[in-house]
């Protein structure tokens, strides 16, 4: 049974965690390959490209809900891992990633705070992770789309690049949370505004199907969460670098 094996695995990992916790971040990353098509985006990030080229600096804000952090282990959450991987890949650039957690806020509520966010942080790039809260509250998908639409428009008008991140793949809650309408609408807005969409849902689903991770597992412990976020952060760093064509800039 999955639950018992999951428990044993969880215990084993927990035991290992005590000794290896500090060393973990530097260890070889999980083999969580992502299909190139999932990380390819035709939509550019012109401001990012320019900022890196001209000022050698990159100021990123991640605006997201609860799934953008790991309670009690924020340094292992994907925004922090994104920062680490970006620093590694873009050694000559001053990279900064800050996280604006918007717990239990719908897209409309988050979008309403963007003006202030822009004033406070002056980001080059806003990575907006959204959809989960709206799906949980079954907000009318049309209203959700309008909210994302407005948020992206506000950010772009202020001269900021935007990346959208969609929901997590969460098989155990599929019978209570209906993700598809929100996934579809995020895709629509991304296309409409020519904004790259980091398809977290499809990526995680792929990891589950290929056996990299078991997202059905009942109590996998904190270790799995850290590894998942590490993989997400790595994939996201690739996504940013590819969309902004930073590889070429670096070589010059």
């Amino acid at each position: 049974m999955r639950s018992s094996s999951g428990a044993i695995l969880g215990l084993a990992l927990l035991a290992g965690l005590c000794t290896a916790a500090a060393a973990f971040a530097e260890e070889t990353p999980q083999a969580c390959e992502v299909a190139a098509s999932l990380l390819a985006s035709d939509s550019p990030l012109p401001k990012v490209t320019q900022a890196v080229k001209d000022a050698h600096s990159l100021n990123i804000v991640v605006a997201g809900s609860r799934s953008s952090t790991i309670p009690s282990a924020e340094a292992n959450a994907y925004p922090a891992r994104l920062l680490a991987y970006l620093k590694e890949r873009l050694s000559s650039v001053t990279v900064n990633v800050s996280v604006e957690l918007q717990i239990k806020k719908t897209a409309a509520e988050v979008a309403a705070g963007f003006v202030k966010l822009l004033q406070d942080k002056r980001p080059t790039l806003v990575i907006w992770q959204t959809g989960t809260v709206d799906a949980m509250r079954s907000v009318d998908p049309e209203d959700f789309r309008a909210a994302v639409d407005e948020g992206v428009a506000t950010l772009q008008k202020a001269g900021t690049d935007v990346i959208l991140i969609n929901l997590q793949y969460s098989p155990r809650t599929e019978s209570v949370i209906s993700a598809p309408p929100y996934l579809d609408n995020l895709r629509v807005v991304a296309q409409q505004y020519d904004v790259p969409l980091f398809d977290r849902f499809a990526i995680m689903q792929q990891w589950n199907d290929s056996g990299d991770f078991d997202f059905f597992s009942a109590s996998p412990g904190l270790d799995l969460v850290k590894r998942v976020h590490d993989c997400l952060g790595r994939a996201l760093s690739k996504f940013v670098i590819d969309a902004a064509h930073l590889e070429a800039t670096q070589q010059n």
Binding site: S67, P71, T132, M136, R172, I177
Partner: peptide, 18 residues
């Protein structure tokens, strides 16, 4: 059953629906 047996910190947010 899911609510009582499932404890995955990755899905803290999603489990809030329960």
């Amino acid at each position: 059953y899911v609510a009582t047996s499932f404890d995955n910190p990755l899905y803290t947010e999603e489990m809030g629906i329960l």
